[in-house]
Design a protein around this nucleic acid. Structure first.
Length: 555
RNA sequence: UGCCCGAUAGUAUAAUGGUAGUACGACAGAUUUUGGUUCUGUUUGUCUUGGUUCGAAUCCAGGUCGGGCAACCA
């Protein structure tokens, strides 16, 4: 089934480690900080970590990197778990860095007793000032040569809450002249008298990322600790702690994070959009979050396929958001039920069709499926809603929809010939008149007439009203973070268009939140899980159909 | 101006010293009761300069360009 693919660099590393016997099995982990919602960039990491373990018969843990109580919340923990599951992955073990606080504390004591850590009393500003610059060595703190006994006493006092935030820190004694800034006596522990979402007020000192992450990996026997490129400079420190502590040697490997055109991906920026109410929450369908994509109508399979296709490398990249759209169209084309919905309705009156007559026609659910995915019933009558844009008074040269005297097929119904139209006082066409050809009925057409155009329609008498939300990219520049000034000035003002009076065929009343639809000739849609009610349906457009006519007509 | 990383069509991604291939996009055509889908074809690329070699996208050296690093964030 699966095509033959060459190995990515992480797979090569894993295969190497397995074949040399360095490891007999592999263990990865996905380590989000619960301070925001997961986005498509995390999906790449999730697919990587779970995919790698799965491919080589290993295991993957879910671990929450919750070492900073100021930013973390249980709400985020729950959403992260839901999103990982929705993406189709199940973790081996669930952990929290906070579960290891006792052990990490013991690691700190261990380093103090080896003379490799000391309590510093300088302020944050002083420490920064003494750190030097990338081209200049830092200065050693006067506290650096405190005795082990003093350090023990002071660190215990820190833990016991004898000091306020910022008064003391525990630092590793490494090298203030290192060319790697992270090795210049990095901070291991800081005081934060803040309640933690899991440990409450048990602790008032919390380990820094660097003094928690590698140790957590080690405790869980993670063999391959995969993270993004910006952590590359942390690796020497990651290794230093593990070495000095003499614990299981996990190894860190870095890959380039995902960037998408017309999208921002940093949690900080996404949080801003949410807090400043520029979007409707983390799950706004325009957000690149997993929950946003889900609400928009993306399938988890399409996201997995996307992540698989973009691969993994160590070079910076920005991927065309069109590729994501390709994968969702590919998936939805196979599974979405076809329905007819008119978004900008005008009346089409079939003058030679009997008044008060209704016919029940049938139409295939999905021509891509076996047996057309079954059929649904479609009421047809003398007056129909059609799209205003499907009629042109003076047609474009390659136009093959409705125009005076032109013929068109009404999808799954009859061929009609346009005989006239009516305009209102503003010159807008409000009604189009036509005559139908009784012998041209869909499925039993004996008319011998072939038309180029087919349009969708909904019976006026049977139509249901619905709200339809059309989404476009959130930003109108390719790389908002690259532009001058505030990224928010590049928000696309028309990224959400709400159509309140769309006309739908009656079977859509049965639509369920998990259903995917193709509104014929319009795009893929789903029920909005947040605002749709049985009384008032609200649909989200997942993505448009490819539209070669739009290109042609714009020439 | 220190350290680290990277550079293959428009965007991604292969080729692991031996024919630069694939996907998306773009363009053209065929099919089509969705201007959708499907099918066919076309198009565009190894950052640069040297070196090693019978042979270099691949190895080496210099350059150029891009990214990261100076939070008591992760």
């Amino acid at each position: 089934m699966s095509e033959e693919r060459s190995l990515n660099f992480l797979e090569e590393i894993v295969e190497g480690d397995l074949s040399t016997g360095k490891h007999t099995s592999i263990h990865t982990r996905f380590p989000p900080e619960p301070n925001g919602y997961l986005h498509i960039g995390h999906a790449k990491s999730i697919c990587l970590n779970f995919g790698l373990a799965d491919k080589y018969g290993g295991k993957t843990n879910l671990r929450f990197d919750d070492t900073n109580p100021v930013t973390e919340e249980t709400e985020y923990v729950e959403s992260i778990k839901q999103d990982v599951r929705w993406l189709g992955f199940d973790w081996e073990e669930e952990h929290f860095a906070s579960d290891y606080f006792d052990q990490i504390y013991a690691f700190a004591i261990n380093l103090i007793q080896k003379g490799l850590a000391y309590v510093d009393d300088m302020s944050a500003e002083e420490i920064a000032a003494n750190k030097g610059t990338p081209t200049e060595a830092g200065k050693e703190s006067p506290a650096r040569n405190r005795s082990i006994e003093d350090n023990m006493t002071l660190f215990t006092a820190m833990k016991d809450g004898k000091y306020n935030d910022g008064e003391k820190v525990l630092r590793a004694k490494i090298d203030m002249a290192s060319p790697n800034m992270h090795m210049r006596d990095p901070i291991m522990y800081r005081i934060k008298k803040t309640s933690h979402h899991r440990t409450g007020d048990k602790w008032c000192i919390y380990p820094m990322y660097d003094f928690a992450h590698g140790q957590s990996d080690s405790i869980e026997n993670i063999t391959h600790s995969i993270c993004t490129l910006e952590f590359e400079v942390h690796k020497p420190l990651y290794n230093w702690y593990i070495e000095q502590l003499g614990i299981f040697a996990s190894h860190q490997f870095e890959f380039a994070r995902l960037n998408l055109t017309y999208t921002v991906m940093s949690k900080r920026k996404l949080l801003q959009l949410v807090q400043e109410k520029l979007v409707d929450g983390w799950d706004d369908p325009r957000m690149p979050t997993i929950s946003g994509l889900r609400r928009r109508g993306y399938t988890s399979a399409s996201i997995r396929n996307f992540c698989d296709r973009i691969g993994v490398q160590r070079r910076e990249n920005i991927i065309d958001v069109g590729l994501l759209e390709f994968f969702i169209r590919e998936d939805l084309n196979k599974i979405a039920s076809r329905r007819m919905v008119v978004m900008d309705p005008i009346r089409l009156i079939i003058t030679n069709y009997p008044e008060n007559q209704t016919e029940i026609l049938r139409s295939e659910n999905n021509p891509e499926e076996e047996n057309n995915g079954g059929y649904r019933e479609l009421p047809f009558g003398r007056e129909l809603w059609i799209e205003a844009e499907d009629f042109q008074e003076t047609p474009h040269k390659k136009w093959f929809r409705l125009a005076p005297e032109q013929k068109v097929r009404l999808k799954s119904a009859y061929i009609v010939t346009c005989t006239g139209f009516k305009k209102d006082e503003n010159g807008k066409v409000t009604e189009v008149y036509c005559e139908y050809i009784p012998e041209s009925k869909s499925g039993q057409d004996s008319s011998g007439i072939h038309v180029k155009g087919t349009i969708h329609w909904v019976s006026c008498e049977h139509a249901c009203d619905a709200e339809v939300r059309l989404y476009d990219r959130l930003f109108n520049v390719e790389n908002p973070s690259d532009e001058e000034g505030d990224f928010k000035t590049y928000i696309n003002p028309t990224s959400l268009q709400i159509i309140t009076q769309a006309k739908t065929e009656p079977v859509l009343l049965e639509a369920q939140p998990e259903n995917h639809f193709q509104f014929i000739r319009k795009g893929y849609f789903c029920i909005d899980s947040k605002y749709s009610t049985p009384e008032k349906l609200v649909f989200n457009r997942t993505v448009t159909l490819k539209d070669t006519w739009a290109k042609e007509s714009n020439r």
